[in-house]
Amino acid sequence: MALSERERQMLEEMEEAIRAEDPRFASQMNGVRGPGGDRRRMALGIVGALAGLGLVLLGINTSIWVGVAGFALIVAAVALALTPGGRPTHGLGLVGDDGSVRRPGTGHQRPRAKGGKAAKATRQGTFMQRLEQRWDERRSNGQGW
Score class of each variant (00 low, 15 high):
G93N: 08
N61A: 15
L92H: 07
A113W: 12
W135L: 15
Q28C: 11
T83H: 06
T106W: 06
A79D: 03
G142R: 13
Q109W: 06
R138M: 12
S27R: 13
N141D: 12
R103K: 05
V68I: 05
T62Y: 10
R123L: 01
G37K: 06
L11E: 00
M42H: 09
A69T: 08
I74S: 12
T89H: 08
F25C: 05
V78K: 07
A113S: 11
G93T: 15
A79S: 09
R19C: 01
I60W: 12
M128R: 08
G36I: 05
A49M: 12
E132N: 13
R33H: 02
I18M: 07
R19L: 05
A121G: 09
L94K: 03
R24K: 11
G54T: 14
G36Y: 02
R39G: 03
M29P: 03
R39S: 04
L58A: 15
G36V: 00
W65M: 13
G59Y: 08
A51K: 02
I46K: 11
R112A: 13
R110L: 15
L3N: 00
A72S: 08
R6M: 00
R41P: 04
S4N: 01
F25M: 05
A20L: 14
A2C: 03
V101P: 00
R40Y: 00
L44R: 14
T106E: 11
M14Q: 02
V68F: 05
A20I: 07
N30T: 03
T83G: 00
G91Y: 03
A49F: 11
V68T: 07
A113C: 15
R33F: 04
A49S: 13
G36L: 06
L11R: 05
Q129Y: 01
A20C: 10
A17P: 00
N30V: 06
S140P: 10
D38L: 08
L50W: 10
V47M: 05
H108A: 13
G45A: 00
Q28D: 05
E15Q: 04
M1G: 12
E15C: 07
A77T: 03
M29S: 09
I18S: 02
E13Y: 04
L58I: 14
R40P: 00
E21S: 08
E13H: 01
G31L: 13
A72H: 01
Q143K: 14
M10S: 01
Q124S: 07
E21G: 00
K117R: 10
R87C: 09
R8N: 04
A113T: 09
A79H: 01
R139I: 05
G96A: 09
I46E: 01
Q124G: 00
Q124E: 10
G107T: 15
